[in-house]
Each structure stands twice: as C-alpha cells, then as structure tokens.
Design a protein around this nucleic acid. Structure first.
Lengths: 227, 227
DNA sequence: ACCTGAACACCGTTCAAGT
DNA sequence: ACCTGAACACCGTTCAAGT
C-alpha cells in the first residue's frame, strides 16, 4: 500500500512531538515511515514544502466554531486558539517561523482577522498593520513558551547557572529584582502563561482602540470612503 | 599572525551580509578567513556560540546616547534603534531568533527597558510582560522586513504568482481588497516600513498605558509597595 | 504511480598531530 | 597557544532503475 501525502504529514507530526524539530530530518522521517529518504520527494517537492504543509496543518480548525462578540473579543478568541494550536505540538512555533508559503488554512485565518477589523470600521492600513502586530505577538509568545519548554527538557540548570553568574555582577539590578523571588526561571518563563498572554492581548487590543478612536463611528461609511 | 575571536565575528558578519544566513556555515566561514574549519572551534565552543556572539554584536551601542524623555518616548527610541540595528545586517532578525544565551549587550538592553518602566511606576509583572510584548514586536517586525527583502532577492515573481493564483479563488475578499491597489506585494511588504513600525509601536505603548492607568500615580510609592 | 539504491555535494564537530 | 588534516556521523537532494 502506497504512502499518501497525509501519512507523511502525520508521521512528521509524530516525529516532531517525540523528538523535536532538530530531529525532523528527511532521512529520519523516512525511516519512521519505513521508506527510503527519496520516497518523500515523490509527495513533497522539498523539505520547505513539507514544512509549509506542517505549519498549514497547525492552522486547521482554528476558525471553528466561528468566534462571537465584538471585534476585539473575536480577535482575542482567534489569537487564543492560534497560540494554543501552536503550543500543542512540540517546537511548532519555531517550525511556523520557517514556513514560507501560506496554505488555505493560513490564508483563511488572515482573511478572518482582516474581515473582523474591516467590518468594525477600521481602515485598510490600520487593519493590515494591526493584524500584523497581533500575529507577531502570537508567534513571539508561542516561541517563547516553547523555548522555555525546550530549555527545561535539556536541563534548565546549565542555562540558569551561566545566566545567574552573569547577573551576579550587579550591573543588572532590575533584571535581578524581577527575577529575585522565583530565581532566574522567572526571567525565562515567568510562569502563568495564560495570564501573561492575556495581558499582551489586552495591551494590543486596547492599543488598537486607542490608536483608532473613531473606528466605530466610521462603520457605516466604511464601504464608501474605503481608505 | 593568529586569528582572534573578533576577527572571526567580523568575517562572519561580512559573509552574512554578502551571502545570507544559509551560507553562514562553519566551513565557508573558515574558507573566507583562510583557515580550516576546525580552527574556528578554538575560538568558539560550537556554532551556537558563534551565533550568540553575532546576535550580541547587533545589540552593541543601542543604548548610546541615552534615550531622553518620558518612559514611552524612551522605550520607543530604544525599539527604533534595536530594529534599525537588526535590519542593517542581512538576515539578522532570523539569526537573532536562533540566539539562545544573551550577552552583556542584550542583558543591558533588557535591563534598560525594565528600568525605564519600573522608574515610571509600573509593577514588576506589567514591566516584564510589557517589555516582552515590545520585544516580540521588534523581532517579528524585523523578521518580516527581512523576509520580504529575501523574497525580493530570490525573485518575488514566483512567490507572487503562486500566491496570486490562490487568492484568485475569491475565497479571500478582504485579503484581495487590501492588496488590490499595489498587487500582492502590498500583502507581503506593504511598503512604508517606518510608518508601519511606528503604528505598531504606538499601539503597544498606548495599550500599556491603557492597561495600567494608575502607573503614574504609583510612582512615588513604587519602592515601598514593590508589587 | 510509487519507491529503492546509490550517489553527490554538502554539513557540524572532534582530535591527534604539527608548529 | 593556535591551527592543520583527516576523519566521523550526519544532512538534503537527485535520479536511474526497478516494480
């Protein structure tokens, strides 16, 4: 029975979760599927193609069920879903960073966020730029979370030790102050991932509001003015 | 005359600017320095060590001259300098993403941003989380800019063509609307990098203000309460 | 249509041995 | 102290040849 594109993706996801992104090589993936490395090239143009497909798979189902409420509540909901989709697969955020060509799921996600803001009366530039800021935040946050997880897996001690030594030099009082209670770990992870993510989300969403205070008033004329 | 650590870094920066991150291999770097690959391992523990050193070199001098003004003006200035330091070397943002251990310059940068917010009366949590949001934005933005530059260098046509074909399916009206005037290029780059960066900066800074409205009032008691 | 076998042109890293 | 030479254990990719 022959391999399908989806079986390769499934195998890649399993390998990713078990061994991490660095272990996701064409050869090891082929091994885990019981084929030769060259076989994968029948289903994927190259490794980039596979990475794009994996990133695309992370974005599946994020828009269902359709988010409800005001524009900011909808964007918040989509952001939460996206981040939790990313952090549910090992190294997924780093992998998403490597993706180049968006697929239907990724495009639908962009489309949805743009639509939400346009429908709320925001201009084209503000809409594009604001959704970008949100996108940077999601990726940055998820990458941060998973970098911490990876550091933990590899033994956080070594990282802590070398960093602690540097910080002992008393040149960084605020860094020390903030990491004082729980130790350096607070600097790296700071725990409370949910509260932290919500904080940034509120910062950005309320910032978008503050920067475009007339958005709601322009809702009606949005179609006509179109700027 | 023997090689120094700084000469290796200089050579790596030159190679990076000329050929890009993918060409920055230990072997090609050694070649460009007129030595064998193994020689680099006398000066750097491994490639990660070199990458950390390069990222660290990008962060040099960013705090000079010391930024003036209110806390938000100071953070804005530091952010601008950081991003312009990143985009001034080819693929620097992507490389910074690969860095694991911060050096003195990177730590000083964090320290400075923390200090600015603490001195303005923000709590420890808000300070740490808000500077993180700014950090994600700087990196995300710089990465975006340089991804566009890389796409241009490799010939934007192919990317545009395949993307345009996908978008023609009429499932993405808002994506099309926003990219309609200047074509798909607007989606990828959207030009006006400075205005775009300033927009996001204002979103985040005004969001920080809105999320912590009592910050200024708490300035005096900041030392005592310390939360 | 789908995969194997084997090769090609690379990698990062190590380490005895040289100077 | 600093580097060479050469090896080791990998990579991604290609492609004739098989079935």
């Amino acid at each position: 029975m022959s391999l399908s594109r989806n079986e390769v993706i499934d195998g890649a996801l399993k390998l990713l979760d078990k061994e991490g992104l660095d272990a996701l090589t064409m050869r090891r993936l082929a091994d885990s599927l019981g084929v030769q490395a060259g076989a994968i090239y029948w289903h994927f143009a190259d490794k980039q193609d596979l990475i794009d497909a994996l990133a695309e798979s992370f974005m599946g189902g994020i828009l269902e069920p359709a988010p409800k409420g005001r524009w900011d509540a909808q964007l918040a909901e989509i952001s939460r879903r996206t981040v939790s989709a990313l952090v549910s697969h090992r190294d997924a955020a780093r992998l998403a960073t490597l993706a180049l060509r968006p697929g239907p799921n990724g495009l639908a996600l962009s489309e949805a966020m743009l639509r939400i803001m346009r429908d709320a009366g925001f201009g084209k530039r503000a809409t594009l730029w604001a959704t970008s800021v949100l996108g940077y935040y999601m990726l940055g946050y998820a990458t941060d979370v998973q970098a911490t997880e990876a550091a933990k897996a590899r033994g956080l001690k070594a990282v802590i030790k070398s960093l602690d030594k540097t910080l002992d030099h008393k040149q960084y009082p605020k860094l020390r102050e903030i990491t004082r209670n729980k130790g350096i770990e607070a600097l790296i992870s700071s725990g409370q991932f949910e509260a932290r993510f919500e904080y940034g989300l509120q910062v950005i969403l309320s910032g978008i509001k503050a920067t475009q205070p007339s958005a709601r008033r322009r809702r009606v004329s949005a179609r006509r003015t179109n700027r």
